[in-house]
């Protein structure tokens, strides 16, 4: 019952945000509404909500507005990996090709047999560790803002100066218990990034480099920083932010189609640690499971977090909709090794 209520609340929330976005673009349609950008030059919708590629935010301001007005967009992205699925619902609004606001709601469903075993034991033992026996969900909200500092990514073909923007993201995990069970420390944190983007017309290619100051585990989906001792968010915890690099390269094969790849450097805060269960000693449970032939010790050890790589194709038949399909190589995620899979995103622009 509680679950159903939560879900309908969330849907309402999404609908409200969407409606707000629509209202903005309709009310303003007289003067302020603008869709004057050339196709695809605003980028698509990242999992963080900022305009950019798939995972890497670019310096471009999202939406099709030029400096003459405002435009907004909504997007849905679905990621399917062997051990998990993630849905992202988001909206963003671009103001005068200068400033951008964004919001994304993400839901990550874990289908990990080893974690499910723990979840089953935990539910039998009446422990609240944020897991559900058959499908544990990690939710996250991301609020973002981005400001274009200087430069024009598109038209300064006679200079090396790129378009440069600074952005901030505030991320808030919903399932705080599970983040802590998975060894994360903070469940809310901010990230700051600086992005430089330039289109090289003679080679029909867009290049973007982003530096992000963050302590995120898997983009924040499994929290920020790590606790080494227990799962209570206390003890030997740290949330050391660091500078991580991200690169996007998009080659335009036609005015409405781009192919390319991305690389996003990740940290390794939780690698090598065991899953924490409320700070409890796992040995008795491990012993019981060992009788069933399950080696809990190694099965519940967090793998080293891998950098994210992806290859994508973006297609924009017109200025109202674009699609992105991508193949993701995400490396190890939490206790799941070698997560490679597919990404599908729909980006609606008003």
């Amino acid at each position: 019952m509680k679950r159903v209520h939560m879900r309908s609340l969330r849907i309402l929330q999404c609908a409200a945000v969407l409606a707000a976005g629509l209202a903005v673009s309709q009310e303003a349609s007289a003067d302020i509404y603008n869709d004057g950008k050339v196709l695809l030059t605003g980028g698509v919708f990242t999992v963080d909500g900022a305009g950019g590629g798939g995972a890497v935010p670019w310096a471009t301001i999202s939406g099709y507005e030029t400096r003459d007005g405002i435009n907004g967009s909504a997007a849905f992205t679905y990621v399917n990996l062997p051990a998990l699925q993630v849905s992202f619902y988001g909206v963003n609004v671009g103001f005068w090709d200068r400033f951008e606001l964004s919001y994304v709601d993400s839901r990550l469903s874990l289908n990990l047999p080893n974690l499910q075993t723990v979840a089953l034991v935990a539910s039998l033992a009446d422990l609240d560790i944020g897991t559900e026996p058959w499908n544990s969900t990690l939710g996250m909200q991301t609020f973002g803002a981005k400001l274009r500092l200087f430069g024009d990514a598109v038209y300064t073909s006679d200079s090396w100066i790129p378009q440069v923007s600074i952005g901030g993201l505030y991320k808030k995990d919903r399932n705080e218990d599970l983040v802590k069970t998975l060894g994360g420390y903070k469940t809310k944190d901010y990230e700051i990034y600086l992005a430089a983007t330039k289109i090289f017309f003679p080679i029909s290619t867009l290049v973007n480099v982003t530096a992000r100051y963050t302590s995120a585990n898997e983009d924040g989906l499994t929290g920020f920083g790590a606790c080494k001792n227990n799962g209570l968010g206390t003890g030997d915890c740290d949330n050391d932010r660091e500078l991580r690099w991200e690169v996007s390269i998009a080659h335009l094969v036609a005015k409405n189609t781009a192919i390319g790849g991305e690389w996003q450097q990740h940290g390794n805060n939780t690698g090598g640690q065991s899953v924490n269960i409320n700070g409890l000693n796992l040995t008795p449970i491990a012993g019981a499971l060992a009788n069933l032939g399950i080696d809990l010790g190694s099965a519940l050890k967090q793998k080293n977090e891998g950098d994210w790589f992806d290859l994508f194709m973006a297609y924009a038949p017109n200025k109202n909709i674009s699609f992105v399909v991508a193949y993701l190589m995400f490396g190890n995620i939490s206790v799941a090794p070698d997560q490679n899979g597919f990404y599908f995103s729909t980006h609606l622009t008003f």
């Binding site: 038209y155 300064t156 090289f200 003679p202 005015k255």
Partner: peptide, 22 residues
């Protein structure tokens, strides 16, 4: 061809600064 077209766009792009005045 699209790529050939982009050569012309690249060559005309710097005029943006003097053409767009608003």
């Amino acid at each position: 061809a699209y790529y050939t077209c982009n050569h012309l766009i690249a060559a005309l792009a710097p005029f943006t600064r003097v053409i767009v005045t608003k």
